[in-house]
Computed example of a mutant assay.
Amino acid sequence: MNIENLSYAKRPPYRDASRIVIACEGALTEPNYFKHFEAASPRLTVTIAGKDTENPTLSAPKWVLARAEAHAEKVGLAEIDEVYLVMDVDHHEENEFRELYEICKEKNWRLVLSNPCFEVWPYMHFKESFPDTRLKPQRLKHILSTIIQGGYHPEKILPYTEKALKNAALLEKDAGYFFPAENTTKVYMLVNRLINLMGKSYFLKLIQSKKG
């Protein structure tokens, strides 16, 4: 994987609120989930650099990095800002992500992987373990549709976030290693970070609003 290490130089004036930039591999599932954090707290600004819906095939690691780079160049980043690349392992091998991880590390950005796919995260809002040792994405998505009445939607899982955080942490094999074990996800680390930045009280208001 040949990934160009682009750079940017814009720096906006000092501000108190942190900006979290999340570059997502998916065009809908991940952005629709993280957008609920966008205006949930005055302490935090979340911007989503999602996939171009007109070019849905551009989901390779290098394209996710390119979207993050382009967004960073457009808005400029301050020292307090953080950038996360949220991606699925899917059919890719660990070595295919190593170069991307090293580039992110140099930039002080974070790579957030789910193995095999993002749906591991919503699954953990309801279950503590998986029926198979190695689930394919389509199989996991089908299982998720049988667990959540009416199918997956962010509003349906947000009230169970604390349970998901606990389950994900328990299943974690190596929190310090960038590549997740099978049927695990690093998304819980990003969600923990968002909650810490926005403040627990604001997060509780967010999930209460989703309970209706």
Score class of each variant (00 low, 15 high):
S129W: 10
I147H: 08
L28P: 00
I148P: 03
M124P: 02
E25Q: 08
E93C: 07
S7K: 07
K156T: 09
K127E: 15
P131A: 04
S18W: 03
G50Y: 00
T57N: 14
D132E: 15
I22S: 02
W63I: 03
Y202D: 01
S18N: 11
D90M: 04
N95Q: 14
I148K: 02
V187L: 03
L144K: 02
H92W: 11
N115D: 01
V112C: 12
R15L: 07
G150A: 02
Y101P: 06
R43E: 14
K51R: 15
K205E: 04
R15G: 09
F118K: 01
K105H: 08
I3D: 10
E93F: 01
A168K: 02
L206R: 14
A60G: 13
T29D: 05
K141W: 00
W109S: 04
R134L: 10
K141I: 07
L65V: 00
T161I: 05
V120S: 03
T146P: 02
E82K: 15
Y8E: 15
L206F: 13
E96K: 08
T53D: 08
A72R: 12
A168S: 11
L204M: 11
V83M: 06
H36A: 05
S129M: 08
S7A: 13
L85N: 04
E99D: 11
